[in-house]
């Protein structure tokens, strides 16, 4: 390179021009990625920042001054606490039930041949593929037809229903990547089917189950459309925010939002760290 440049000094400029283009190309990608990240993270940053705001009126839309009052008193708004508690209860129960059922369905689909397996495989995608508004209104029609009173139970049933699919897909992906012979090897080594499940299958798909459970929890906390349709007069946190927004947007909503966000990120990081620890160093 240097030798050539000495011999042909005139070509030096065009070459450095090419280098510049290459550098721009190289960094253009980084810049685009950064812009996309900012685009994604900026709203979240605003939500977090405004949780420390002391708004002048009832709408927390313009920055006034910094305060910790909202954090000191996160439930200082009528009905906010009840909605958060309801959301957490529904999320915990529905993700628990959906994880258990979804794991069993995933095991059946991955390990057994039975009549209706192909149909089940297809139907399991339906709640993920169908528009929420369709799912929600169908459920509502079903509940009304059977005169099921709307409230906690119907919200729970709806959340379990749409959560199962996500758990099945997550756990099945984990099962698909696993050597079928591992379970046979366990049985070959005198493990009963139950011992095989406990000692081999379960530890190996545990990360998938955990991921499915977390996903289900997050989806449940987050859901609006279906919940709105089947909730009757009960209010989950998203319903509360939507209802409150017409008359007020208190900064406490930002506080709860921030807590949910931080908790989700913390769980994600914990999951990644756990995965890393399970993969010993020097692994090929």
């Amino acid at each position: 390179m240097t030798v050539a440049a000495e011999r042909l000094p005139l070509s030096g400029r065009s070459r450095s021009g090419a280098r510049l283009v290459a550098r721009i190309r190289h960094h253009a990608l980084t810049a685009a990625a950064l812009a996309a990240l900012v685009f994604l993270l900026l709203p979240i940053a605003v939500v977090i920042a405004f949780s420390f705001n002391d708004p002048a009126g009832r709408f927390n839309f313009t920055w006034e001054r910094f305060t910790l009052d909202n954090w000191a008193n996160p439930f200082g708004f009528p009905d906010l606490q009840g909605s958060v508690v309801l959301s957490l209860e529904i999320a915990a129960l529905s993700s628990l039930v959906a994880t258990a059922l979804g794991t069993l369905i995933a095991l059946a689909l991955a390990r057994h041949r039975f009549r209706g397996r192909a149909a089940t495989n297809l139907l399991i995608f339906l709640p993920m593929a169908a528009p929420e508004i369709v799912m929600g209104s169908s459920l509502l029609a079903l509940f009304l037809n059977y005169s099921v009173p709307l409230g906690f139970t119907t919200i729970l049933i709806a959340h379990i229903m749409f959560n199962i699919s996500f758990v099945v897909v997550t756990v099945r992906a984990r099962l698909a990547g696993q050597d079928m012979h591992l379970e046979e090897a366990a049985m070959d080594l005198f493990a009963s089917p139950w011992a095989t499940f406990l000692r081999v299958t379960l530890p190996l798909i545990a990360p998938g189950i955990l991921a499915g459970g977390l996903l289900a929890f997050a989806l449940s906390v987050d859901d609006f459309v279906i919940t709105y349709l089947v909730s009757g007069s009960d209010q989950t946190f998203p319903l509360f925010v939507w209802g409150a927004a017409r008359v007020a947007v208190p900064p406490q909503i930002n506080v709860i939002g921030t807590i949910i966000f931080v908790a989700a990120v913390a769980l994600m990081v914990a999951n990644v760290l756990w995965q890393l620890r399970r993969t010993p160093k020097g692994a090929q």
Binding site: H181, L182, A185, M187, D188, A191, P193, L204, R278
Partner: peptide, 28 residues
């Protein structure tokens, strides 16, 4: 069933339990 037979198998894929140490694999 396999777990009631006095035979053991060496699988072509080895089928070692990835989550267990060598000791625990052999002790299984």
């Amino acid at each position: 069933p396999p777990y009631k037979r006095d035979v053991n198998t060496v699988f072509q894929s080895y089928a070692l339990f990835p989550h267990l140490s060598i000791f625990e694999n052999v002790a299984f």
